[in-house]
Simulated assay, not measured.
Amino acid sequence: MPRPRPARLAALMALLVGGALALAGCTSSSGNDGGNLGFVQGDGSVKTWTPSERSEPVTLTGTAFDGTKVDTSKWRGDVVVVNTWYAGCAPCRKEAPDLASLASSATDGVHYLGINSTDDAGAAQAFQRTFKIPYPSISDKSGSVVATLQGVVPVQAVPTTVVLDAQGRVAARVLGATTKATLAGLVDDVRSGDGTNTAAATS
């Protein structure tokens, strides 16, 4: 015997509500993230800050996987691109060739830096060799380097890419994998000092 219509309607409503809750679980509000932007999990979304909106300068220090000491305060006056990653991260592997290409062709005044909070030196350096990454990555298993950055701009997805302006202030952020066109546009915008993003639509 067919189920009475009211029961079928109730079942349908339960499915709809459950689906809506499942979709809501893909995003969450992060509260105050320095730019009052709701957190969208790793979708390549771009946020930029104009010079007047930017926070205090950020200084990131640590030891790269090759033993080199890194201190971004030594790069004041230049734009710094910071990328979080780990070797087993599929989006990280997807964006790695673009990051390597941009870093390899970067002109004076632009530096690239990776932060890896997961891998040991063997796995990290294998990744760097595979993708011919020309810039250093800080080993950050303690999470202290990401915490320094997190105090200014949330880094809730891996990968996340942050662009620091010449004063060391956060000028742009990409949550999730970025693209060559998007990141090149952000760097150009920050270097030009207008603080706007013309490449976000290409992500």
Rank of each mutant, 00 (worst) to 15 (best):
S52M: 09
E53S: 13
S55F: 10
P57M: 08
V58Y: 03
T59H: 08
L60K: 04
T61C: 04
T61Y: 02
T61K: 12
G62R: 04
A64Y: 01
A64C: 10
F65C: 06
D66T: 15
T68C: 06
T68D: 12
V70H: 03
V70Q: 02
D71S: 11
S73V: 13
K74R: 14
K74Y: 07
W75G: 09
R76G: 11
R76W: 05
D78G: 07
V79S: 07
V79R: 03
V80R: 04
V80K: 06
V80L: 09
V81F: 01
N83H: 14
T84V: 09
T84D: 06
T84H: 02
Y86E: 07
Y86N: 09
Y86I: 07
Y86Q: 11
Y86L: 07
P97S: 08
P97Q: 09
D98M: 06
L99F: 10
L99I: 11
A100H: 04
A100I: 03
A103F: 03
T107N: 12
V110L: 02
Y112D: 01
N116R: 02
T118C: 03
D119R: 00
D119Q: 00
D120W: 03
A121R: 11
G122I: 10
A123Y: 05
A123K: 10
Q125A: 09
A126P: 08
A126G: 11
R129G: 12
T130R: 12
F131Q: 10
Y135L: 11
Y135G: 13
S137M: 11
I138V: 15
D140S: 08
D140E: 11
G143S: 11
G143P: 14
V146M: 13
A147L: 11
Q150R: 13
G151I: 09
V152I: 13
V152Y: 01
P154N: 13
P154V: 09
Q156G: 14
V158L: 07
V158W: 06
T161R: 01
T161A: 06
A166Q: 15
Q167I: 06
G168W: 00
R169I: 05
